[in-house]
Simulated scan of single mutants.
Amino acid sequence: MTDRRAELAQRLAAVRRRIEVASEAAGRSDPVSLVVVTKFFPASDVDLLAELGVTDVGENRDQEAAEKVTRLAHRERLRVHFIGQLQTNKAGSVARYADVVHSLDRPKLVGALDRAAGREGRVLDALVQVALDGAEGRGGAPPERVPQLADLVAASANLRLRGLMAVAPLGQDPHPAFARLHELAGRVRAEHPDAGWVSAGMSGDLEAAIEHGATHLRVGSAILGSRPSHG
Rank of each mutant, 00 (worst) to 15 (best):
M1H: 03
T2Q: 13
T2W: 00
A6T: 13
E7I: 05
L8G: 08
A9V: 04
Q10S: 14
V15E: 09
V15Q: 10
R16Y: 00
I19K: 07
I19H: 02
S23H: 03
E24L: 14
S29R: 14
D30V: 00
P31T: 02
S33F: 12
S33P: 01
L34A: 03
V36H: 06
V37M: 14
K39C: 08
F40L: 15
F40S: 14
F40V: 14
F41W: 15
D47I: 10
L48Y: 05
L49F: 02
L49P: 12
E51I: 03
E51C: 02
G53N: 11
V54S: 11
T55R: 15
D56W: 06
V57D: 06
D62Y: 00
E64A: 06
E67R: 14
V69C: 05
H74N: 12
H74K: 06
R77C: 02
L78N: 06
L78H: 12
H81Q: 08
F82K: 11
F82Q: 07
F82L: 11
I83C: 10
G84A: 04
G84F: 02
Q85P: 13
S93H: 01
V94I: 13
V94F: 01
V94K: 09
A95W: 04
R96V: 07
Y97S: 01
V100I: 14
H102A: 05
S103E: 01
K108C: 00
L109Q: 11
G111T: 13
L113H: 09
D114Y: 08
D114R: 10
D114M: 01
A116W: 03
A116E: 03
R119G: 02
G121E: 01
R122V: 02
V123A: 11
L127Q: 09
L127Y: 07
V128M: 10
Q129L: 10
Q129E: 15
Q129D: 05
Q129K: 14
L132N: 13
G134I: 09
A135R: 15
E136Q: 15
G137S: 07
R138I: 11
G139Y: 01
P143T: 00
P143A: 11
V146R: 04
V146F: 00
L149R: 06
A150K: 07
A150V: 13
D151I: 10
V153M: 10
V153S: 07
A155I: 05
A155N: 03
L159T: 04
R160N: 11
L161E: 08
R162N: 06
G163N: 09
M165Y: 03
A166F: 03
A166K: 14
V167F: 05
A168V: 05
P169K: 01
G171P: 12
G171R: 09
D173S: 04
P176M: 04
F178P: 05
F178T: 02
H182E: 15
A185S: 15
A185F: 04
R187A: 14
R187S: 13
E191T: 12
H192V: 02
P193E: 10
D194H: 13
A195F: 08
G196M: 08
W197C: 12
S199A: 13
A200L: 14
M202F: 02
S203W: 06
S203H: 06
S203F: 08
G204D: 11
L206K: 02
I210P: 03
E211G: 03
H212I: 00
G213T: 09
T215C: 05
T215Y: 00
S221Y: 00
G225N: 09
S226D: 15
R227I: 08
S229D: 14
H230S: 15
